[in-house]
Design a protein around this nucleic acid. Sequence first.
DNA 1: ACATAATGGCTATTGACAATAGCTAATTGG
DNA 2: CCAATTAGCTATTGTCAATAGCCATTATGT
Lengths: 189, 189
Amino acid sequence: MPRAGLSTAAVVERAAQLLDEQGSESVSLADLAASFGVKIPSLYKHVDGVRGLQRGIMLSAKSDLTAVMEQAAVGRARDDAIRGMAVAYRNWALRHPGQYPLTVRAPVQDDADDVAVSTAIVAVVFTVLSGYGLRDDDAVDATRFLRSALHGFVSLETGGAFELPVDRERSFSKLVESVVTALAAWRND
Amino acid sequence: MPRAGLSTAAVVERAAQLLDEQGSESVSLADLAASFGVKIPSLYKHVDGVRGLQRGIMLSAKSDLTAVMEQAAVGRARDDAIRGMAVAYRNWALRHPGQYPLTVRAPVQDDADDVAVSTAIVAVVFTVLSGYGLRDDDAVDATRFLRSALHGFVSLETGGAFELPVDRERSFSKLVESVVTALAAWRND
DNA sequence: ACATAATGGCTATTGACAATAGCTAATTGG
DNA sequence: CCAATTAGCTATTGTCAATAGCCATTATGT
């Protein structure tokens, strides 16, 4: 019996790929195994069942998205940083429609890795917002507002809820500009 | 064999209830049947399998949410209408965390009922926004912005993503006020 | 080099669940 | 009060995740 050369990383990566391609909400071990030309139980040597597999994809998705957002915000400040980050966020989601929903899963509190990557995402947003001089509760409210707007748009868009034949790019730009304006005026209301 | 007195409406309603209570993403026919003290195959006399059951819950959820939003907007205009609708939207979602995700599912195009209830939701938002004098593409962009903000917040909230010990009510109020401000200034950007 | 350990993938099996076919008992209409 | 319909049942099949236990392959240590 020739070896297929599996590894935890390879299995998780392939699963994430299948998830993005086939659009379904979860990968079956059956499909995943088939994609390697391998039987289901073999996967258990590398991944702890469906649960462990999903956890692996989720961790990699969250940290990947965080990196992309950081990258987009580096060297920019305030409005420019927001715009860059927003576009990067949306593009990542459009490229990874299957993985995206996993990035908004609340962290499991007794999973240290999950908590770490999850707080990292919020930290990026938080840092970008620090340029507006927002503190404490105001910063939290603003972060929630920004996340809500981005997540809402992307979630509806990848879910196919924007069906009218109106340019989604333009709608997103308008949304980002509205958010930027609101953040600039945050102290006033 | 005494009859349990099932009906399509009763089955769908109970399923929606279980969905909200047990927080999971879907109801199993096993649990649903058990809740009636009935065997699985009996459900097929009232509902067309898991698919048909989900469709039933989705239709009822979408029209229920639409009614609640309409109710909240009646007799109000502009900012007041938005505020009322936003609060009603969020409250409905918080009360129905299981059903809520079904309300943002894109309509299946060859399902006339689905298309009808789905366009009804958008129509409510559209009508409320008509008070701002927005037309054509602007109205679409604004509708998408409003839906994105509301859905994003509620989705993150019911998903448990807002974990910091900061008042979520306040965050939501700030979000609504930001949206209202943005809508009032829509033409300017 | 070769024995021994560690590892990778297999078959077989169990258990949960959806789904269908076909039966029988309860209800309802003339 | 009998006939037709309907509701719920048992039995069965098929899919999938998961576990147990087997054997082949690769790596290691003297």
